[in-house]
């Protein structure tokens, strides 16, 4: 079977703002599916880390959003879209160690300012767009 005639498999999850109880479930489901599909473990690990960081950012920083994974035999495309509040300065947000997380979040072990840099390191292609007031979209391609 030729890879390019295979219909991509799409998984899509809504992630709620502030819901720490379910945080991580979407990433976990995506990871488990990739495993059943027989993807190499190095790819699975990168997808798992990247989607988990994105999912946590949705929970912590956004007003809620959607994680979508499009799976093809040779590549996984992940897009994360939220409805706001947007990131005022993307260059700053992408810096290692930059975080606006309040003390209460830091006490939970988040807010090291490593999420976005980690995503960029895990992805082969990383793209982030954001508009203050409109929301943020991240697209990652991992192969």
């Amino acid at each position: 079977m030729r890879d390019n005639i295979v219909k991509p498999m799409v998984m899509s999850y809504f992630v709620e703002k502030g819901n720490f109880t379910c945080a991580g479930e979407a990433s976990s489901k995506i990871k488990n599916k990739l495993m059943k599909l027989g993807f190499p473990s190095s790819l699975i690990r990168r997808v798992a880390i990247a989607t988990y960081e994105a999912e946590m950012n949705l929970v912590i920083h956004s007003w809620g959003g959607v994680i979508k994974a499009e799976i093809k035999p040779d590549v996984v495309c992940i897009s994360i879209t939220d409805t706001g509040p947007g990131i005022p300065n993307i260059d700053k947000a992408m810096q290692e160690g930059y975080s606006t997380a309040p003390e209460s979040i830091r006490e939970m072990g988040f807010g090291a300012g490593m999420g976005l840099p980690n995503m960029r390191n895990c992805a082969d292609t990383f793209n982030i767009e954001s508009q203050k007031g409109k929301g943020t979209t991240i697209k990652m391609i991992i192969r």
Partner: peptide, 8 residues
Amino acid sequence: IAIAMQKM
């Protein structure tokens, strides 16, 4: 993987 996807 392609066949696995169909099975899935």
